[in-house]
């Protein structure tokens, strides 16, 4: 009896079909592509998914509260470009890294404060701040690349380091979302803000905190971006908002708020990375990536709606 219950519960886990799909895809790619099932290939995929993946953790938290953050890519770029001014002046990592993270935190807080104070929908506030941050970068850097990056900054973007950081964050925030007061409260805010307010949840504080975290995650992704590419460009992070929203939604988080898991987000970003690697190695035109991502989003959401309708 107990085992049957467990089995039923396991089948109802949202991530299971996604996981099955990933496994099938890996089998398909390893049959059709020679050299797909290699350690190097998976190491490469793990490095590739990390930057958008870390941004997606923050995006998951934001979406769970029923908000959205379109400024993540702009925050990433702003933080590393302004931080880059210190980096090329030769300041030590002990100063530049905290500075970059602080910039991300400040910009995230600005988003949160505007959303809470002005009571403007998050999509508008972050659309506005995205424009402001992107414009500010171009004005300050005049569109110049920074290529004089000391070798010390490359460590964080090489080997397994980025992926290890990603996994640690995944574990911490999966736990946070499931088991802590913070996690339960942001789910409460996302499912019904009024009732969360009436049951004594400090809604505004948690909302600001969520955008602050999203800002820090974007800045951290930026630090890894520097490590991976070895230079800083004003165009960094363009499209990250849409890619991270895609990963989060494929992972089963509702854009209406109130539900979502970090594991799902990981699977979503892994799936997108896997497909990108697969079509690159199959020498299929890389432009197909966009078509596949779009179809995946539609499929994932239709699947969720179908499951919900069945339950009802």
């Amino acid at each position: 009896m107990r085992t049957k219950n467990r089995l039923q519960r396991l089948i109802q886990v949202r991530e299971l079909p996604l996981l099955a799909f990933i496994v099938l895809l890996i089998i398909f790619f390893s049959i059709t592509i020679k050299g797909f099932m290699t350690v190097q290939n998976f190491a490469m995929i793990s490095r590739q998914i990390t930057t958008v993946g870390i941004v997606s953790i923050g995006m998951t938290l934001v979406l769970v509260t029923g908000g959205i953050d379109l400024s993540v890519g702009a925050i990433l770029s702003f933080a590393i470009n302004i931080g880059g001014l210190l980096i090329i002046r030769g300041l030590p990592i002990a100063i530049t890294y905290p500075f970059i993270l602080l910039l991300g935190a400040i910009m995230g807080t600005i988003n949160g404060l505007l959303i809470v104070w002005l009571k403007v929908p998050a999509i508008i506030v972050t659309l506005g701040t995205m424009n402001i941050f992107r414009g500010a970068i171009m004005i300050i850097t005049r569109g110049k690349y920074m290529t004089q990056i000391p070798d010390g900054y490359l460590w964080i973007g090489s080997g397994y380091t980025p992926f290890v950081i990603f996994v640690i964050l995944l574990v911490i925030f999966e736990f946070t979302l499931r088991r802590t007061r913070f996690g339960r409260n942001i789910v409460a805010i996302g499912s019904n803000e009024q009732s969360a307010l009436y049951s004594g949840v400090p809604v505004n504080w948690f909302k600001i905190l969520v955008y602050l975290l999203s800002g820090i995650f974007s800045a951290l992704a930026g630090i890894i971006f520097i490590g991976r590419s070895g230079f800083i460009q004003p165009q960094a992070g363009i499209g990250y908002e849409m890619n991270s929203i895609a990963a989060v939604v494929i992972g089963g988080t509702s854009i209406y708020g109130g539900s979502g898991t970090i594991i799902g987000t990981f699977l979503g970003s892994f799936l997108m990375g896997l497909i990108l690697a697969g079509i690159t190695m199959l020498a299929v035109n890389a432009y197909w990536q966009g078509v596949i991502n779009g179809l995946l989003i539609i499929l994932a959401i239709s699947f969720d709606t179908l499951r919900q309708m069945r339950r009802e």
Partner: peptide
């Protein structure tokens, strides 16, 4: 399919741009 228009058009936008 009752998909929210924002996310539905994120998806179709990605497809159309690739096409």
């Amino acid at each position: 399919l009752k998909i929210d228009s924002f996310i539905a058009t994120v998806a179709t936008n990605s497809i159309l741009r690739s096409v």
